[in-house]
Design a protein around this nucleic acid. Structure first.
Lengths: 322, 322
DNA sequence: GGTTTTTCATAAGGAAATCTTATCACAATA
DNA sequence: TATTGTGATAAGATTTCCTTATGAAAAACC
């Protein structure tokens, strides 16, 4: 069975159906001798005669009868292989493993997942929510297909594409509403609540306040594990914090806190999508990045943030490593 | 999917398993470039990349992951095709459709079927019991694989092989035990009970009595539909009959009839097996004919038939057409 | 930082397979 | 007996497939 070919099985099937060499050959688009030879070869391969050649008719032998349904099964499976490919050609199919950092995930995913599963019906989406370094590692190990993180990642093995840039806003107790917006140095002197070690957003916030991240934290920072917690801590009067614009609608829904935009240059971060440069999904991932962009556009359309200054024009990018 | 080959699928499987072109190629017994080309061609065929070539590793794409189990399925089916063939190589497999004339069937089949199904485990044996002309027709139409009939059949499209020759014996009432054995002409004058029209054995019996078969039956023959019935009629004192040797043990088991051998030349018939000259089962059928011969040897070993003369040496063959 | 190594892709030529046309052999039919 | 229909065979052309040799890119090493 070493040199069995698909052609032989197709020819076999045709001959079994037509019971006639010339007609079967015609159906296969080859000459009658070619068919004869391939059938003969198949029979040699198998070691048993498959057809009984009568002077007036060709019919399957008993063994051929046993052989035929199996062959048909195989040919059908191969056809299905083709179907699968055809259907998947320009659609993403199967599993899409997407990683998202925690300061983006809760705000982006609800909208994004809906859009994606609508766009790619039957797509099996796996989401991994963790911090950037782990995401990048899993990406490079092939355990993720793409990740949504703050740019730049500066990994030569990865392609990065910008999704959007968003400002950070100050979250302070409701009572502070309307007070002048502090400048970075002033924030540093306030009780600044931050995410725990490892979140890139923590570093971005610190950087904004010109804190040397390698040095010890300037004050008795309280570390929270989510933006939600941070806002609740602000609400409790423990201090102030920064959150990305995208988080505002969700996180200030019912909290007694006030939001203030900074003066220019506003702090901001750029969120992007990355994938292995070698990934054959590039085209589809690009497509997905569009979907993400649309999803976030919708998220950032309503801007209920009272602006203390004119809206920012070209905000500087924050460091994102980590 | 028109030019997909098994090789490509095998190579695909190997590459998916090894994740390494050179090693996979080695496992397939080909050179690395050959593998590269076939994989590339497969990917072109499919229209989607199946592998993601990293600098340090080769791994399946998402689509490849969907593709792989189907491919493995197909390869397994093909292997099973090979297994099926290997197992069937020198064994008869599947269905064996065997036709037997009614004056042989009841005596031969019990032994034969046991032997056959022992010899070819899993063989699906179909038996057709009917008269010679129908058997031959079904044989030629491919609805039977072989038939056991009285020879000769003289059909150029059929191969015939002799199984055995057996004598006919006279069955008469038990009271006639020991009486002189009548010669053919005398039998003609007795009330000779025969099988109904169509049985070759009827013609053979008539022929023995030198009755012209084309003429009207000489006397008020009573036609029975089986040898069993004939013997029971003899037992009832209605007349005498002839039966083949093979039927003696079974048919005279409990009847009050006596058996007498004829003087030489004993009447006899030759039973043989026939099949289409084109049948690829020839080899196996020959094998089966051996089994039949052994089965009948065993049947004819005990000869409880009182012999009126010395045993026959070269009995003349009877006509068998019909 | 440059060199070596590893790995897959590409190129060119040769071997093997597959196909085509032409022809044969056989048997059924007229 | 001649004719027709059928599959098998033969010889040459074509296509596919494989090998060796080489290239390019990235990783590992010194």
């Amino acid at each position: 069975m070493k040199n069995l070919t698909f052609k032989q099985l197709r020819y076999f099937e045709a001959l079994a159906r037509h019971g006639h060499f010339r007609r079967a050959a015609e159906a296969c688009g080859i000459s009658q001798p070619a068919l004869s030879m391939q059938i003969k070869e198949l029979e040699e391969e198998v070691g048993i005669e498959l057809f009984e050649r009568g002077a007036r008719q060709v019919r399957l032998t008993g063994f051929g009868e046993e052989f035929a349904p199996r062959v048909r099964d195989i040919l059908r499976s191969v056809d299905e292989l083709g179907d699968l490919a055809r259907v998947s050609r320009d659609r993403l199919v199967g599993r899409l493993r997407i990683g998202v950092i925690p300061t983006v995930a809760p705000y982006l995913l609800p909208t994004l997942l809906g859009k994606l599963s609508l766009l790619h019906k039957g797509l099996d989406i796996h989401v991994r929510e963790t911090q950037t370094p782990r995401l990048l590692q899993e990406l490079e190990e092939g355990r993720l297909d793409t990740a949504i993180v703050a740019l730049p990642v500066s990994e030569p093995a990865l392609t990065e594409i910008t999704l959007f840039t968003e400002s950070f806003v100050l979250v302070r107790p409701g009572a502070d509403e309307g007070k002048p917006v502090p400048d970075p140095e002033a924030v540093r002197e306030m009780r600044l609540l931050l995410l725990e070690e490892g979140h890139c957003f923590r570093d971005q916030a610190l950087s904004f306040c010109n804190v040397d991240m390698r040095a010890a934290p300037p004050r008795d920072f309280l570390d929270a594990s989510s933006l939600s917690t941070l806002v609740q801590m602000v609400d409790a009067g423990i201090g102030v914090t920064l959150i990305p614009e995208m988080a505002v609608p969700v996180e200030t829904r019912s909290a007694g806190v006030s939001i203030a935009r900074f003066r220019e240059p506003e702090p901001s971060r750029t969120i992007g999508m990355v994938w292995r440069r070698t990934s054959p999904l590039a085209k589809q991932l690009l497509q997905i990045s569009e979907a993400v962009r649309h999803a976030t556009d919708a998220l950032r359309q309503p801007r209920p943030v009272p602006s203390a200054t004119a809206p920012a024009t070209t905000p500087p990018t924050m460091p994102s490593a980590g």
